[in-house]
Amino acid sequence: QEELVKAFKALLKEEKFSSQGEIVAALQEQGFDNINQSKVSRMLTKFGAVRTRNAKMEMVYCLPAELGV
């Protein structure tokens, strides 16, 4: 569980995922086979993730800066 949270936060820091499906796929690539869209959705809510525009003006998920991840 701890490893999943770390990987999840690291992915969001990249600010390149525009959908929950993309986050699920990226986590599965890292070996988290039991991850699915509903789990990702709950984690996004739990950590207060928001959708914002990145440098390329794409809408992407990211974590609020005050979490200091």
Score class of each variant (00 low, 15 high):
21 G>V: 12
49 A>R: 03
69 V>H: 11
24 V>C: 06
25 A>P: 00
55 A>N: 10
52 T>Q: 14
34 N>K: 11
1 Q>Y: 14
23 I>L: 13
31 G>I: 01
23 I>F: 08
46 K>L: 14
38 S>Q: 13
28 Q>R: 15
40 V>T: 02
54 N>L: 03
48 G>Q: 07
44 L>S: 01
66 E>F: 08
20 Q>M: 14
6 K>H: 10
62 C>H: 07
58 E>A: 05
23 I>A: 01
9 K>I: 15
10 A>R: 10
39 K>Y: 11
31 G>Q: 03
63 L>T: 02
19 S>C: 04
3 E>H: 10
8 F>E: 00
20 Q>I: 15
55 A>E: 12
48 G>H: 08
7 A>P: 00
11 L>D: 00
39 K>N: 09
16 K>Y: 04
50 V>L: 08
54 N>K: 03
43 M>K: 00
61 Y>Q: 02
61 Y>H: 02
10 A>H: 08
32 F>P: 01
14 E>C: 15
40 V>I: 08
34 N>M: 09
65 A>L: 12
13 K>G: 09
42 R>E: 15
3 E>G: 10
8 F>V: 06
51 R>K: 13
69 V>M: 09
26 A>R: 07
4 L>G: 01
2 E>Q: 11
19 S>L: 07
18 S>N: 06
60 V>I: 07
28 Q>D: 03
63 L>D: 03
68 G>I: 09
46 K>G: 08
54 N>S: 04
7 A>E: 03
28 Q>F: 09
6 K>Q: 11
68 G>K: 06
23 I>N: 00
2 E>N: 11
36 N>F: 04
59 M>D: 06
36 N>W: 05
3 E>R: 09
58 E>Y: 04
9 K>T: 10
40 V>F: 02
40 V>N: 00
6 K>S: 11
21 G>P: 09
16 K>I: 08
50 V>G: 07
60 V>R: 03
22 E>W: 03
36 N>G: 07
42 R>I: 12
17 F>C: 15
45 T>F: 10
1 Q>K: 11
20 Q>H: 09
61 Y>N: 01
59 M>F: 12
29 E>Y: 09
47 F>L: 13
34 N>A: 09
67 L>P: 15
66 E>K: 07
1 Q>E: 15
14 E>G: 06
11 L>T: 03
28 Q>N: 08
67 L>Q: 14
29 E>W: 08
15 E>L: 10
43 M>G: 00
38 S>Y: 14
7 A>N: 03
67 L>E: 14
46 K>S: 11
11 L>G: 01
12 L>D: 00
55 A>L: 07
14 E>Q: 14
25 A>C: 07
65 A>F: 12
22 E>F: 04
62 C>Y: 07
4 L>E: 04
10 A>M: 11
46 K>E: 15
24 V>L: 11
38 S>W: 13
43 M>T: 00
27 L>E: 00
31 G>N: 03
61 Y>T: 02
23 I>T: 01
60 V>Y: 04
1 Q>F: 12
51 R>H: 07
68 G>F: 04
41 S>T: 08
55 A>R: 07
61 Y>K: 01
27 L>R: 00
52 T>L: 11
28 Q>H: 11
18 S>C: 04
10 A>V: 07
11 L>N: 01
48 G>S: 05
39 K>H: 13
53 R>S: 07
55 A>W: 04
45 T>P: 02
14 E>R: 07
9 K>G: 04
23 I>P: 00
19 S>W: 07
30 Q>R: 10
69 V>T: 14
13 K>C: 05
20 Q>P: 14
52 T>G: 10
45 T>Q: 12
60 V>A: 04
28 Q>C: 06
53 R>F: 11
41 S>P: 00
25 A>K: 13
31 G>K: 03
27 L>H: 00
59 M>L: 15
29 E>A: 14
69 V>W: 03
67 L>M: 11
56 K>G: 07
57 M>E: 09
68 G>L: 08
55 A>I: 08
13 K>Y: 11
11 L>E: 00
66 E>D: 13
60 V>H: 03
60 V>L: 03
11 L>V: 05
21 G>M: 15
30 Q>D: 04
52 T>M: 15
46 K>C: 07
23 I>D: 00
31 G>P: 00
60 V>C: 02
41 S>N: 10
26 A>I: 06
29 E>S: 12
27 L>V: 01
65 A>N: 12
55 A>F: 05
54 N>I: 02
60 V>F: 04
48 G>N: 08
32 F>W: 09
64 P>H: 04
23 I>H: 00
3 E>V: 09
69 V>S: 13
44 L>V: 04
39 K>R: 11
62 C>W: 07
48 G>V: 03
28 Q>W: 10
45 T>G: 08
64 P>Y: 04
18 S>W: 06
49 A>W: 03
15 E>K: 08
41 S>V: 10
36 N>A: 05
27 L>S: 00
15 E>C: 15
60 V>E: 02
43 M>W: 07
2 E>G: 11
7 A>V: 09
43 M>A: 01
63 L>C: 11
46 K>A: 14
60 V>T: 04
19 S>Q: 07
11 L>S: 02
55 A>S: 13
14 E>I: 07
63 L>E: 02
52 T>Y: 09
18 S>L: 08
12 L>G: 00
16 K>V: 08
12 L>C: 04
30 Q>H: 07
64 P>T: 05
35 I>Y: 02
64 P>F: 04
33 D>M: 14
54 N>V: 03
69 V>F: 05
2 E>S: 12
30 Q>M: 14
31 G>E: 02
14 E>Y: 06
9 K>Q: 08
36 N>I: 04
44 L>I: 08
19 S>P: 00
51 R>P: 03
35 I>E: 01
53 R>Y: 13
37 Q>A: 12
15 E>N: 06
12 L>Y: 01
38 S>C: 05
13 K>F: 09
29 E>T: 09
52 T>R: 15
19 S>T: 15
43 M>I: 03
62 C>S: 14
12 L>I: 06
47 F>V: 11
54 N>E: 02
12 L>R: 00
33 D>K: 14
21 G>T: 12
8 F>A: 02
52 T>F: 07
56 K>P: 02
42 R>K: 12
41 S>M: 11
4 L>M: 07
17 F>K: 03
47 F>N: 03
48 G>Y: 03
36 N>S: 11
54 N>M: 02
40 V>A: 02
3 E>I: 10
31 G>L: 02
57 M>G: 15
18 S>F: 06
31 G>S: 03
67 L>G: 13
34 N>I: 05
45 T>A: 11
3 E>S: 13
9 K>H: 11
60 V>K: 03
55 A>M: 06
65 A>K: 13
53 R>H: 12
48 G>A: 05
62 C>N: 05
21 G>K: 15
8 F>H: 00
62 C>G: 13
15 E>D: 04
55 A>H: 10
61 Y>D: 01
57 M>Q: 12
4 L>W: 05
39 K>T: 14
37 Q>I: 12
61 Y>R: 01
30 Q>L: 14
64 P>D: 04
67 L>V: 14
3 E>W: 09
42 R>Y: 14
33 D>Q: 13
20 Q>L: 12
60 V>W: 03
24 V>S: 05
53 R>K: 10
51 R>Q: 09
66 E>T: 06
66 E>W: 09
58 E>H: 05
32 F>N: 01
20 Q>W: 06
17 F>G: 03
44 L>W: 01
5 V>W: 10
12 L>T: 01
55 A>P: 06
